[in-house]
Design a protein around this nucleic acid. Structure first.
Lengths: 336, 336
DNA sequence: TTGTATGCGTTATCAG
DNA sequence: CTGATAACGCATACAA
């Protein structure tokens, strides 16, 4: 029936001691006698005392909350990531404030702002596809709120981040294609403006060279990531005089559209064309024509490492000048 | 460079007026003169003043945070739900604290406890599969923290909740099967202990009767929701002397296993057996042998309604004695 | 070992 | 219209 919550003062009054003694007793302060400590704890339990966290937060300038900003939870990649973050947070007695950016820079700014107002102790963020300007993070410095990026990270070095190196997985993919006798390997890449796309093209080219396979610009087909764009990107490849027999596709959603397109156009996946996809959709095993393999990017691992970085920063409280950590995992080719 | 954040007091000092005046000016209190208000605001802007929310939260006994507890974000159903909640929360200037229960009662309790300590202003929760004892919510009363349930809700009436009535969708499904000439329709149901399963069996039986189709206990096959259990449940149906030609499956994950099993055992979906699934996996359109249709349960709508209920309770602040709201949406059969 | 006093940043009450 | 003061619940420096 919602009585007024018990406070330290009440316990003190009932016990005819001072609030500070109660406070210390409850916190197992060494200077308090065993007997009083016990008395206080007993009374606290009896009254059902529970500390008012908001008061503590206010006083200690710590909220025990971290904010997590990511594009979209409906992508399995991020659902896995946030679970890992939640686990890591729980270990440190922290809770997770959630914000989905939906790849909108405007929303990213708002969320950062809200989190800042809430005085979260730190932020973990995966950038939206088009975000390059990080000036909005500067406002965080004012309150010494550390931010760690993962997966889609800024290019600057002086910011803590963990990401996945796609070049290793790409190389393994090309190698796998070559072993299966493919000579013409294509890449369906994201928008040319994306840093992520540029990197992929680079690694793709390098891997081909290392494997002694030819690279030709026509074999890199860009999509705007809409269904239509995905279709067209695939179509461009199919229209080449020398059709590629193998293709690396930008992500699972592109791959799904590719599969759909193939079905509608009587292209047989695994026969006319072989596919390897980035990321790793949990459902491939149920599909009739799944990709040959996927380039695993370890969302949970990335997120865990980022969390641990963040807690190191939080617990350091800006005391020491810690070195900026940058971690990079190797992606890997995995078969379903 | 992390200077000490500017406070109201500093503004007051610089302007040689009292802090309370500054506070009122910043809040556009009508009793403050226009000139002072302007002066204060200008100075505040100059100094880059930002209110310390934690202090305000503390003072106002409001955190502007709601907690959301659900089983698993990796289920698309809940990913959609939480996005709807986030949107609704943003409209009310609220932020979302996240907790995944993973269907563990222990975790549910811990999360509720953590949220309570953080003094969230309210909670939205979808219960884990096995949760029936709601005593852990009683602790919330102490702080007048309202809780609203959605989708997987407690049976009691005196608790605000919104769920989806499956009987309408089930009826439409059975009708659709009948129109296609099916006489033997089966149900792959969840564990018998689950309230949700019992309800489904009931609605299933009723729908068959209304459609003039026979009901037989053998045609309700229970699974423990593991892959093995799903396989066996399907197998039991296939082993009946009179094999069902149509089947309603407990949820999308069961359906996926069913599809897998069918493929491995040369059962042709859409020919040997026709399937309608609960919920609506966003990926059916990419599959070669998708279910005929799905029973849509409107996660986003459920979550939105629950959010609005919650904010009504929060904004009422326990002043009036509001009636307990119970909403029920009708499920619907949808084709892909 | 314990109590007293003070402050965290803000707002509300009351007085002027 | 504005200022002084108290209060929210807790923790801590200092005093005893």
């Amino acid at each position: 029936m919602a009585n007024k919550p018990v406070t330290i003062k009440e316990i003190a009054r009932k016990l005819r001691i001072s609030p500070s003694t109660v406070s210390r007793a409850l916190n197992d302060h060494p200077s308090i006698g065993l007997v009083t400590t016990e008395r206080v704890k007993k009374m606290a339990a009896e009254l059902g005392y529970e500390p008012n966290q908001t008061a503590i937060f206010f006083k200690q300038r710590r909220t025990f909350i971290i904010g997590v900003i990511l594009p979209k939870l409906s992508e399995p990649f991020f659902a896995e990531a946030i679970s890992a973050i939640e686990d890591e947070a729980a270990k440190h007695n922290y809770t997770v404030l959630l914000g989905q950016s939906l790849d909108s820079i405007e929303r990213e700014k708002n969320i950062v702002n809200t989190f800042r107002n809430h005085r979260v102790d730190g932020i973990i963020m995966s950038l939206g596809k088009n975000t390059t300007d990080l000036s909005f993070t500067e406002a965080l410095n004012k309150y010494n709120i550390p931010i760690v990026f993962f997966d889609c990270v800024p290019e600057q070095l002086n910011v803590p981040k963990v990401s996945c190196d796609l070049s290793t997985g790409i190389y393994e993919a090309i190698e796998a294609f070559k072993q299966r006798g493919h000579q013409h390997v294509a890449l369906i890449n994201g928008p040319e403006t994306l840093h992520a796309s540029v990197e992929r093209t680079h690694s793709f080219k390098q891997a081909l060279e290392r494997c002694g396979l030819p690279f030709h610009e026509d074999y890199v087909s860009h999509t705007d990531l809409t269904e239509k764009g995905n279709f067209e990107a695939f179509q461009r490849l199919r229209n080449l005089k020398e059709k590629p027999s193998a293709v690396l596709s930008f992500n699972d959603f592109v791959t799904l559209d590719l599969i759909k397109y193939a079905k509608e156009n009587n292209v047989l996946i695994g026969y006319d064309i072989h596919v390897i996809s980035f990321a790793n959709y949990p459902l491939w095993k149920y599909m009739d024509n799944p990709p040959l393999a996927s380039i695993e990017q370890y969302p949970a691992e990335q997120a865990s490492i980022a969390s641990r970085m963040l807690f190191r920063l939080i617990n350091n409280e800006g005391k020491e000048e810690l070195p900026v950590e940058n971690a990079k995992l190797s992606s890997k080719l995995v078969y379903q």
